[in-house]
Write a protein that binds this DNA or RNA. Sequence first.
DNA 1: CCTGATTCCGTACGGCGTACTGCGTTCAGG
DNA 2: CCTGAACGCAGTACGCCGTACGGAATCAGG
Lengths: 245, 245
Amino acid sequence: MSEQWGTPEGQAMLRLLWDPPPPPTRGPKQRLTLDQVVAAAMEVAAQQGVDELSMRKVAQHLGVGAMSLYTYVPGKDELFELMIDAAYADRVMPDPALPWRAQVEFHAHEAWRMYQAHPWLIRSHLWRMPLGPHVLDVQEDLYRAVALTGLPEKRVAQIAGLVESQVFGAARSAVTDTSIASKTGVTVDDYWNSRMGFWGTYYSAERFPTMTRIWGKGGFDEEYSDASWEFGLALFLDGVERLAG
Amino acid sequence: MSEQWGTPEGQAMLRLLWDPPPPPTRGPKQRLTLDQVVAAAMEVAAQQGVDELSMRKVAQHLGVGAMSLYTYVPGKDELFELMIDAAYADRVMPDPALPWRAQVEFHAHEAWRMYQAHPWLIRSHLWRMPLGPHVLDVQEDLYRAVALTGLPEKRVAQIAGLVESQVFGAARSAVTDTSIASKTGVTVDDYWNSRMGFWGTYYSAERFPTMTRIWGKGGFDEEYSDASWEFGLALFLDGVERLAG
DNA sequence: CCTGATTCCGTACGGCGTACTGCGTTCAGG
DNA sequence: CCTGAACGCAGTACGCCGTACGGAATCAGG
């Protein structure tokens, strides 16, 4: 039975994600709710950066002792999974009457928006994705949109994964800089300034001719703006369109 | 002068990357070299995972006190930057006589290989890229290859960035699972088994019809194998080819 | 040989996640 | 209503982490 139902910890996590248990009747009333704990964690992550997220700080934010959080959540990893699913809850789904390409692009934009709103999600993708209801709803809808191409199932799964990958990759670049800046107080300009000696001392136009030329033409000015990943996605979807015929 | 030469810390980091200082004449001989320290850190990261990488463990690996490392390296972040540049040192460059597309694909495969060999590099992309010689040599060569298309400089920078993004995105998915497995001892199968209760309890084919269909056809069996990202890159490069005319 | 520079490293501080424990509250069963 | 079980809460503590500091050992130049 344990074999078909999974481990107790896995069970507990799924319950938390799908079916948060009502407060038990016995004992003192809970001062908080699970949602409050998750919301507080998201606030701390938003204000101080994911590296500064700690159980103690979340507890302090709630005016509660650190260990009290453990009555709501088994541990920090589990809390983080709940944060991820909560972030996906805000995702808006595309109008299913639109052509498939418009729907896929809509999903991509929503994902981009989500990463901007919750930069710590970038880190989350180095975890296994939680099997949360909101995460799965979004996945399902993206698969549905891609499946409208009529391509075989394996291709659909591949394409959906690649769309996610591309937005993630672009978001990573864009978000990393700003989140490092807000966290450490060192902006991109500060960083380059701090390493200014590089250009005079070690950089040579002979060793890096192409970069020098691109730099001269301003090619590095806005490498990872919206325009960039939209351009990449467009080329990719052109290819998909041709495949779908 | 400080303005045009950057901060002292930035200076020190650049020196370490480009021009490791010879051991000073005064004082006791150094027991280690900078390269040994970096190599030891890479070994620890390879064996125990990047989350388990700590100064104390690196020092222990070298049979040395923890604080001794700080005579070679200003801190952990700087050591990590050196690890990144060292990983890029292994990158092989494509034959510049090949057509541009073959060269770009070669770079993509090399990047993929590098991520497999050094999974902790995935984490590194949440830093700012270090201005190391090997990192820059690889970047330059990729830009050079893309520039062979004859496209305008801005496009070249965009395309090179997108190629990197795509390989990174694919590698992230592939590497995350295996590195989590080796680190925690929980394989992907274990993970799914631990959450097995999900399928009977919360999953419903009505709520997730597309995923159910794809699953039934085996569409999730090898979502992120080499074949998948090569397929995505191919579609993207088809588009670039058409642009380049 | 002496001196000053430099390496090495023990100790310590403040942070982390969380196991354990004891206390006080609350409600169900009598 | 009374009481004991169940439970929320939080203080303390343990073993990690990065690293600041200072003392001891070691060496080259004078």
